[in-house]
Design a protein around this nucleic acid. Structure first.
Length: 657
DNA sequence: GTTAGGG
DNA sequence: CCCTAAC
C-alpha cells in the first residue's frame, strides 16, 4: 500500500515520485524528470536531504508494503491505528464532515511532537494526505489534517477541508475545542478558495494544497504495479512554524519505522521517521554558520498555553500568508541578538518586537509586517524606548534554484546537486537590501527615521532582500589619474588612494556593511544571514558539478583596470619582465588587495592582445597607444629574453653532456 | 603559493 | 575574471 503523503517543507516545486525506485518505470522516470524540469526546483540542503531521505524511507517501506488483500485505495480504519509507544494519549483525528470527505479522510501527524500518531478515523476510506503539521510540543496536538478527494469530472483533486482534529494529549478541553474549532474554521474558509482554484496561491505557513492533476488515490495495493507518480509528491511548500520546536521522537522509532509490519503502521512510522529526518536535517542546517539558531526547546518545554498561542498566531497570520504566491520561502525563528550596539536599552530578547517576514514576490523580497504570528511565543510588544525599530526577521523568501538532474540520477545525486547549488550560493557573499513600500531603499546613509522606518510607522511595507554581492551600482572608487606606485620610484606603501580604497573588496569578501543605519541595524542583529538568493534560476547538473558549481560561485566584482593601473603594470613588467607576476604585484600593486598577481598576469595578457588588434576592435576604457606600444615592446623584449635564457640553458646542458 | 595557459 | 595543471 502506498500512502499518499504530503510533507511540505517550505519549498515549492520539489516533487518526488511516490514509488519504490525499483519499480519506477521508464514512464515514471520521464514524468519525474518532466516534473522536475517543469517546476523550478528550489535548492537547499534541507530540501535535498529531507526529500532524499523521505524517498529512501518511503521506498524502504513501500518495498515491503504490499497488501495484496486490499483492493483499491482503501485503508481500513483500524489499519490506520498506531500502536502507542508512549503513554501519551493517542492523537485522534476524524473527519468532521463526512459528506464532504466521503472518499477521503485524514491523516494526522503526531510524531513530531512525541505523539505516536495513534490515529483513528471514522468513515475513512483511504489516507490521503498528511497535509503538514505544526510542531509545537509533545504535549499538545498540532497535526494538520486535510482531506482530498477525486472529483469525478476531471480527476482533479478537489480539496475538502472539513476535518476535525482532536488532540487528546491536550488535557484542557477548552483548548481542544478551540483548536478544533480553529482548524475547522480555517480549513473551511480555505476550502472555498481551494475549490475555486486559487490553491496555488495558498503557499502559507499553514498549508498548501496542490491541485495536482493527478488523482489523489492512485494508491495501489499492488506495489509492483506501475504507479509512477501516484499524484504524490513532496511539494515542500510548507514549512513548519518553528523548526526550533521540532522535536525528535524517541529513538525507538527508528526500529519501528523499519519494521513495517503493518501498512498503516509502516506508513505512519515512516512518516514520523521521515519527519524526524527532516528535523534532523533542518537542525543540521540551522546549526550551520549561516544561521543564528535560537535556543532549542526541549520536549515539554512549551506549555499548553504556549501551544495554544502558537496556534492562535498561526491563525492570525494565515490570511496574510495564504495570499502569497506559491513560492519557496523559509520560515525561521530568529531571535534578535541583543548586543550593546543594537539594544542599548538593555532589552532582552523577550522585548523583541514581533514581526513577520514573509516572502512576497519574485524578487526575493521578504516583507515585514506586524503580525501576531510570531513563531514561538514572542510577544508583540514594541518596546520603543529610545525609538528603536525592532525587527524580528523570521523568514526570507528563498530564491528559486533550478536543479537539473538526469532521470537516471539517484536521489543521492540530487541531494548532492542541490547541496552544491546551495553551498555555492551560500559560499558567496550576500548582502541585504531594504525595501520599503515596494521601493528599494538605496540610500544607506539615511537614518531609519528619515527613511520612514520607525517604531511609529507600520512596518507592513518593510521588506528585505538578500542579494548577491554583485553590486548593481558598484561603489567602486572611480579611477583617478594618479598612477599606481611603481617599484622603481615609489615605495610600495605609497599606493594611490584609488587602489587603497579598493583593497577592502578582495576576492570573495562581502562589501563592508554600509554605515547607514538601515543596514547597520540589520547586520548588527545578525538576523540577516546569507540565505541564498538569486533572482535568476540556477542550474546544477550532478554529473558536471564542478563546472556548474563554478558558475554558481559568487564572482568577484569586475574592476576594469584604469589607465594608471595599466601604466603601472607596464612599467613593472618592463622592469621585471613577464613571468614574475608575484614580483610585479609586490612591486606595483602591493597595496591593491583586489589585484592579485593572477589578475596582473591576465591583464598583461589582455593588454598584449589589445595591442595587437585594431583600435576599432578594442573595448572598454581606451588605453593610450603609447602604453600599448610599450606593452608590445616589453612583451617582445621579454619573450626574446626568455628565448635567450632557454637557449643558454640548453647550451649549458648540451655542454655538460 | 606561483606560474602558465585555456576558457 | 575563473579555473586548474604543473611546479
Amino acid at each position: 500500500m502506498v500512502l499518499q503523503k504530503r510533507l511540505d517543507y517550505g519549498f515549492s516545486g520539489f516533487q518526488v515520485p511516490d514509488v519504490p525506485r525499483s519499480t519506477r518505470s521508464a514512464r515514471g522516470r520521464r514524468l519525474f524528470k518532466r516534473k522536475v524540469e517543469d517546476r523550478q526546483m528550489c535548492a537547499f540542503e534541507l530540501l535535498a536531504t529531507v526529500a532524499g531521505d523521505l524517498l529512501q524511507e518511503r521506498d524502504s517501506c513501500a518495498h515491503s508494503n504490499t497488501s495484496p488483500g486490499t483492493a483499491g485505495p482503501v485503508i481500513a480504519q483500524d489499519t490506520v491505528k498506531q500502536e502507542p509507544q508512549d503513554k501519551e494519549a493517542p492523537l485522534k483525528v476524524e473527519p468532521c464532515d463526512p459528506g464532504s470527505c466521503d472518499e477521503s479522510v485524514f491523516v494526522s501527524d503526531g510524531a513530531l511532537h512525541g505523539h505516536n500518531g495513534n490515529c483513528t478515523s471514522k468513515e475513512s476510506t483511504h489516507v490521503s494526505y498528511v497535509e503538514g503539521f505544526e510542531i509545537a510540543s509533545n504535549s499538545d496536538f498540532s497535526a494538520k489534517v486535510s482531506c482530498a478527494e477525486r472529483t469525478k469530472e476531471d480527476g482533479n483533486q478537489k480539496v475538502n477541508l472539513s476535518c476535525k482534529v482532536n488532540g487528546s494529549a491536550c488535557n484542557e478541553s477548552s483548548s481542544k475545542d478551540k483548536f478544533s474549532h480553529g482548524i475547522e474554521q480555517r480549513l473551511a474558509s480555505d476550502e472555498q478558495k481551494m475549490v475555486n482554484g486559487t490553491a496555488q496561491d495558498t503557499c502559507s505557513s499553514e498549508y498548501v494544497m496542490d491541485l495536482d492533476n493527478k488523482p489523489p488515490a492512485l494508491v495501489s495495493s499492488d506495489s509492483s504495479a506501475e504507479v509512477p507518480f501516484s499524484g504524490d509528491h513532496i511539494p515542500c511548500s510548507y514549512f513548519p512554524k518553528s523548526w526550533d520546536n521540532v522535536q525528535l521522537v524517541n529513538k525507538d522509532d527508528d526500529e519501528n519505522s523499519s519494521e513495517c509490519t503493518q501498512p498503516s503502521t509502516r506508513t505512519m512510522n515512516a512518516f514520523r521517521s521521515l519527519s524526524r529526518i527532516g528535523d534532523r536535517r533542518i537542525r543540521k542546517i540551522l546549526a550551520s554558520k549561516y544561521w543564528k539558531v535560537a535556543p532549542r526547546l526541549k520536549d515539554g518545554e512549551l506549555s499548553n498555553s504556549e501551544t495554544r498561542r502558537v496556534f492562535h498566531n498561526r491563525k492570525g497570520c494565515y490570511t496574510r500568508q495564504r495570499s502569497q504566491r506559491n513560492s519557496p520561502y523559509i520560515r525561521r525563528k530568529l531571535f534578535k541578538r541583543c548586543s550593546t550596539s543594537t539594544c542599548d536599552g538593555g532589552l532582552s530578547s523577550e522585548d523583541i518586537s514581533k514581526s513577520l517576514v514573509k516572502g512576497v514576490n519574485g524578487d526575493g523580497i521578504a516583507s515585514v509586517s506586524q503580525a501576531s504570528s510570531s513563531v514561538v511565543g514572542q510577544e508583540a510588544s514594541f518596546h520603543s524606548r529610545g525609538s528603536h525599530v525592532k525587527l524580528s526577521i523570521k523568514s526570507f523568501r528563498v530564491p528559486e534554484l533550478f536543479i537539473e538532474v538526469s532521470e537516471m540520477e539517484t536521489v543521492g545525486s540530487l541531494k548532492r546537486a542541490v547541496l552544491e547549488a546551495v553551498t555555492a550560493i551560500l559560499g558567496g557573499g550576500v548582502h541585504v537590501g531594504v525595501v520599503l513600500q515596494g521601493k528599494k531603499v538605496r540610500d544607506d546613509n539615511k537614518t531609519l527615521l528619515q527613511t520612514g522606518i520607525s517604531h511609529h510607522d507600520k512596518l507592513e511595507t518593510l521588506g528585505f532582500t538578500l542579494e548577491p554581492t554583485l553590486p548593481p551600482t558598484p561603489t567602486t572608487p572611480t579611477p583617478t589619474s594618479t598612477p599606481p606606485a611603481l617599484c622603481h620610484e615609489d615605495p610600495p606603501h605609497l599606493v594611490p588612494q584609488e587602489i587603497q580604497n579598493s583593497s577592502s573588496s578582495d576576492r570573495g569578501s562581502v562589501p563592508p556593511p554600509a554605515d547607514g543605519s538601515v543596514d547597520k541595524t540589520l547586520t548588527d542583529s545578525r538576523a540577516l544571514v546569507p540565505i541564498p538568493t538569486r533572482v535568476e534560476a540556477l542550474s546544477v547538473v550532478p554529473l558536471q558539478r564542478k563546472s556548474r558549481q563554478s558558475e554558481l560561485v559568487q564572482r568577484r566584482m569586475r574592476r576594469p583596470f584604469s589607465v594608471s593601473e595599466v601604466e603601472a603594470l607596464v612599467q613593472a613588467v618592463e622592469k621585471l619582465g613577464t613571468g614574475r607576476w608575484r614580483d610585479v604585484k609586490l612591486c606595483a600593486f602591493d597595496n591593491a588587495k583586489h589585484r592579485t598577481y593572477v589578475d596582473l598576469k591576465d591583464k598583461w595578457k589582455t593588454l598584449v592582445h589589445t595591442a595587437r588588434i585594431s583600435p576599432q576592435q578594442r573595448r572598454g576604457e581606451p588605453v593610450p597607444q603609447e602604453l600599448l606600444d610599450r606593452v608590445l615592446a616589453a612583451h617582445a623584449y621579454w619573450a626574446h629574453q626568455q628565448v635567450k635564457v632557454q637557449m643558454k640553458q640548453q647550451n649549458e646542458q648540451y655542454l655538460l653532456i
